[in-house]
């Protein structure tokens, strides 16, 4: 009882600031400009919407896999490395985490652009003659997003690795398993929950990205958040914007529930 009471302010706060507006959006999607499902019909029949959704999913899945895979060894170093290594890795994770997404994105822009640092170095070293186009396309978007999202993958992975029973690993080594085998057959499976948790967190975050694709995509990588912005402010059609938001929410929500049921993430 007292527990419920203590948490009540939070529930109230979320109810007022989140659920009520959300209900408003859902309501708008079937009432603006007139009652009915025509907004959903229009959204589902619009080839632009489909191409944007397809690109968003493609980029986000790619980003999710990359961020999680890259975060994994990083997290191992952070959790299991020697103290000095741990400190360096921790700084590498934390410092970018505290920087604003805008400055990080502009950083990538000056790093990767045609006359950017990377191209200049590669040319000076004689590795390439022509500038590589590494930004203002999907590649740039993916680099920027992966960089931003790696810390979000690190935290669930770290918690899974920290909660692991070390004795199991030692036992495996003790009965003669190679390091390689211990890693793939014991360590990785025991962090599976953390891997899925990290992937889900990154995926959900990545769906709503706006700044990174806008700046690093060269105007070509229009993702769903930008399309919704367009329908709210630029060419106002709030019913359509609401329907788009609702569809994305339902799709992502459904996807999450399925994954969670299938893999049992969160039950550990």
């Amino acid at each position: 009882m007292s527990r419920t009471l203590l948490i009540a302010p939070l529930l109230l706060f979320l109810g007022v600031t989140y659920l009520v507006p959300l209900a408003g959006v859902l309501l708008q999607s079937v009432t603006v400009p007139e009652p009915g499902l025509q907004n959903y019909q229009e959204v589902l029949g619009d080839p632009l919407v489909w191409s944007v959704i397809w690109r968003t999913l493609r980029i986000c899945l790619f980003v999710t896999v990359l961020a999680t895979v890259l975060a994994y060894p990083l997290t191992m170093l952070w959790v299991r490395g020697r103290r000095p290594v741990q400190i360096v890795v921790e700084l590498c994770i934390m410092i970018p985490f505290w920087l604003s997404v805008l400055s990080r994105t502009f950083g990538w822009l000056s790093m990767l652009s045609n006359r950017g640092l990377l191209n200049t170095w590669l040319k000076d070293l004689g590795i390439i003659d022509m500038s590589l186009t590494m930004v203002r396309n999907d590649f740039g978007v993916i680099v920027g997003m992966v960089h931003f999202l790696i810390p979000f993958a690190v935290f669930p992975l770290a918690s899974a690795m920290r909660n692991m029973d070390e004795r199991v690993l030692m036992a495996a080594r003790g009965i003669g398993a190679s390091r390689f085998r211990v890693f793939w057959q014991i360590f990785v499976p025991m962090t599976w929950g953390g891997i899925m948790g990290a992937a889900l967190l990154v995926f959900v975050f990545s769906i709503g990205f706006y700044v990174v694709p806008t700046l690093l995509g060269g105007g070509r990588s229009v993702m769903i958040a930008e399309l919704i912005y367009l329908r709210i402010f630029q060419i106002p059609d709030w019913g359509i914007a609401a329907a788009l938001s609702a569809l994305i929410m339902v799709a992502v929500g459904g996807f999450l529930v399925t994954i969670i049921r299938r893999t049992g993430v969160g039950s550990q």
Binding site: D46, P47, L48, S51, V52, R55, G219, R220, S221, V222, L230, Q234, I235, D237
Partner: peptide, 15 residues
């Protein structure tokens, strides 16, 4: 015509 034109344009430049 702006709304419809922009939709089509974005579809073209982003594909």
């Amino acid at each position: 015509n702006y709304g419809a034109a922009l939709d089509e344009y974005l579809g073209i430049i982003s594909s």
